[in-house]
Amino acid sequence: MQTLTQRLANPTRFMELSARLLPWISGAAAILLAYGLYLAFFASPADYQQGETVRIMYIHVPCAWLSMMIYGLIALSSFGLLVFRHPLADVSAKAAAPLGAAFTFLALLTGSLWGKPMWGTYWVWDARLTSVLILFFLYLGLMALRSALEDESAAAKLTAILALVGVTILPIIKFSVDWWNTLHQPSTDFTSTVDPSMRLPLLVMAIAFTLLFFAMHLKGMRNEILRRRVKALRTQAVAGRDRLAAQAANQGAAE
């Protein structure tokens, strides 16, 4: 009895399955996103304190959630690559890194846009902001390391090692930033309860963004697999041409 991950180890089977899944995930993401945006911008009340700016939250919170989930996914894929040598693990990690960096950047950007009217400044050295910023740096490190290495299989493994180091150190970073923050300013309490009228749009948006990510991730993985196939075919073609040329040269020498 093969598990799902074992069956997906065959790229062709993965391509078939993902081709069948992708329209459904993209469709669901589009519908939920439209519904969520409608709820967020028209059907939900403005906050009694924050006014209309509270609507930024419906974009900001899903991005922040994804920024962490995607790093978790990359760490899981890296583990799958290093321990089980799953052939799709690296494809998954590679496709997820830029998406994760983009969502983290969006979380920082929307947060700072919200901060301007609320806190009076675009950037505060708040504990959460700082740890998300460092998470963003970790994503950049992953992408930079991969792009700096030419050998693809070595790049895959080295990036995986870095991702696992990052996921080990992230809790320590989070802890130390929280500690540092209490040195400088009293921590802000964000954990107050969310009103039910805002909870539904937030939930819909969170699910929509997660589906959106998975749609883009699957598409990215498919592109990566196709790119690798093209590369393999090219190498084969060049090798074949060289072999033919060598044969022709040999025949010429024999005659």
């Binding site: 950049l140 070595a154 970073i173």
Partner: peptide, 27 residues
């Protein structure tokens, strides 16, 4: 070790390692 074989290793090394130094720096 990660950047041993890269060409512009120095800058890349800084980008990779400096975020990991945050806890050391803070404490």
């Amino acid at each position: 070790a990660l950047t041993m074989k890269t060409r512009r290793g120095g800058l890349l090394l800084a980008l990779i390692v400096l975020p990991l130094y945050v806890p050391t720096l803070i404490f």
